[in-house]
Design a protein around this nucleic acid. Structure first.
Lengths: 341, 341
DNA sequence: TTCTGCCATGTGAGCGCTCACTTGGGGAGG
DNA sequence: CCTCCCCAAGTGAGCGCTCACATGGCAGAA
């Protein structure tokens, strides 16, 4: 493998000039640059990231910790982030934590952070809207920028998020406008800040409509939990106790749909359902699910923008900002209809 | 930030001894090791990965290229792989390619590989069961071990995969045993080797049952494509032309279920459906989907084992092998039943 | 013509580690 | 009691870059 001196010799210049060319220094005369470029491609030269990192104390590597597992949202955010990072010339090093084992969770987080810090990442991004993840990482001394995909800003950590509250308002208002009054909210894990924001949006709209909010029923985001809750909801729908459900994500909505179908409750005739996320499958649930679309990939890009802003030294020209992620949008399909008389 | 010399001074030893302790060299006397350990934690010393990589020419970093997007399978494989890699002391650097833009796909692959190679990863793992991905990476000179989650072994690249053929056989045999003879296969993208394996399994079983296989209908893995195909399948089911569908993944099966439900074709009374993957939602499709479960995380772990085996120099003691991923298993739910008379 | 001031390029010292050796001291064997 | 050897530890030379600075040459001003 050729190094910078080999290239320098080949091009008949000093190693420093090669360095300048490789790093795009504009003070190099075009003719010189051409000679160097030729030598670079002739020798198939690739600068050593390790040597660069050692000399410059900058690794151009970002750490990504994800606890979201293979869920659609987190995965999409990750992909958007990774794309933006690579475009900005950063490498992304990952550490995905299994979300299940809560006893070793803090330890896992510590080891993930350690691994990333050992790589000398310049910043750490946390895609784990769970407060457990946030608390865990807060317990570790990171010593460099930390950005979380989360809706609660808090000390020592910058948060970027989609407007969960607005999405929930959209969803709930849609139900209210259809004449629903007895709207139950099936919330996600209360440790997720996103879950709390969605609940807040629902509550505010319901109250604004002059209705006393029904107690929140809580699932764990999984279709199973939705199904279990749905069984109960079916009874309450039978008694006319509820006419609509605003569910904190699409997967739980699927479980509810399943339960209602088993109990022969018709959607949307007897009960309307709104989900959240607009996963690719939602359009083909039975019936197709009315839900709130979120642009996760855009969020990923926005996270990268934020990281860049944090990494640029004070007073330097700010990097090009990604367009802020679009607000969530309501997608009306066939799971919602007018409230039964 | 403390370096190795600071620690050496603090512990009253040479930098080399510190290096030995940090790297677990057994020739260090316990008392010395204790002194060094104390100094390490007192100074909060962390060896610099960059310096290590530079001096040792080993980065202990692996590159992961994924084109699977936020799909359940690829994401799960990734997570399994990452966990195993970290446990083995490797960092994982990612590069996810958007799968959509096929014109720039090869270029994207090249840039992804370049970015990873620039990091001096020791091996590259490709989670992209698409032959396009494989061809693209084959076009790039990687110059180090390359492992793909794919079922076709081919020159210069090691493949690891779950037994798609066996899974397809299981699924199709289940239908045959229920008395079905007119079993249509809804295949995935023909560029995916997994899709071809599943098709092969189906074909073999159908032929073994003494039936002429119906022409394969092909989707693109998405629920949309399943829906479109399902609309057509509904007509054919009405004419008694088909009584069962073996669908190459669960998402397309969902689309088909949707189409059939719209056309009031009863599942499984009129048509039986088997999916593939057993995504977490499959148990709550309506009706719950009979499908083939795959252990993606185990596959991820197995990929890591393979990488380790490739990285260990010839003749060295082989690393602990992960248990081979379990064979796919049939999960019978409610979307399959006896063939109509 | 001679001096000033850049502009393009070169020089050398690290960055923090590992690798290949070297060194010193104590126990076993004669 | 001396020698040999081995075990524990130390020494110094890079790994391939970047950073800060030094240098040379040529244009324009005096």
């Amino acid at each position: 493998m050729a190094n910078i001196f080999d290239v320098a010799t080949e091009a008949g210049v000093s190693h420093q000039t090669v360095s300048r060319v490789v790093n795009g220094d504009p003070t190099v005369r075009p003719a010189t640059k051409a000679r160097v470029d030729a030598a670079v491609s002739k020798l198939n030269y690739r600068p050593s990231a390790a040597a660069r990192a050692l000399a410059s104390r900058k690794t151009r590597t970002l750490g990504l910790i994800s606890t979201g597992g293979p869920l659609f949202g987190p995965s999409s955010i990750m992909q958007g982030f990774d794309g933006a990072a690579r475009q900005a010339g950063y490498q992304v090093s990952i550490a995905s934590l299994p979300t299940d084992d809560s006893t070793t969770f803090a330890a896992g987080m510590r080891s993930a952070v350690d691994a990333l810090l050992g790589q000398n990442v310049e910043a750490i991004v946390l895609i784990a809207p769970d407060t457990a993840g946030i608390d865990a990482i807060r317990a570790v001394d990171v010593g460099r920028p930390l950005v979380a995909a989360d809706s609660t800003a808090s000390e020592g950590l910058v948060s970027v998020s989609l407007d969960q509250y607005a999405g929930a308002v959209l969803a709930t208002r849609h139900l209210v406008e259809l004449g629903h009054r007895r709207i139950v909210h099936v919330g996600g894990l209360s440790t997720w800040t996103d879950a709390r924001e969605r609940e807040r949006g629902w509550r505010d709209v319901v109250i604004a409509a002059g209705v006393e909010p029904l107690p929140v029923v809580r699932g764990d985001w999984s279709p199973e939990s939705g199904y279990r809750i749905g069984l109960d909801l079916a009874d309450r729908a039978d008694h006319g106790e509820i006419t609509a459900v605003f569910c904190a994500n699409d997967q739980m909505a699927l479980g509810i749909l399943h339960a209602l179908s088993e109990r022969r409750i018709r959607v949307p005739d007897q009960v309307s359902i709104v989900g959240f996320d607009d996963v690719p499958e939602a359009a083909h649930y039975i019936p197709p699910l009315t839900t709130v679309r979120q642009d996760f990939a855009a969020l990923g890009r926005q996270i990268m923008s934020t990281v860049e802003a944090l990494l640029v030294p004070q007073g330097a020209p700010p990097a090009v900002q990604a367009a802020p992620a679009p607000a969530p949008a309501l997608v009306v399909r066939e799971s919602t209809g007018p409230a039964p008389a």
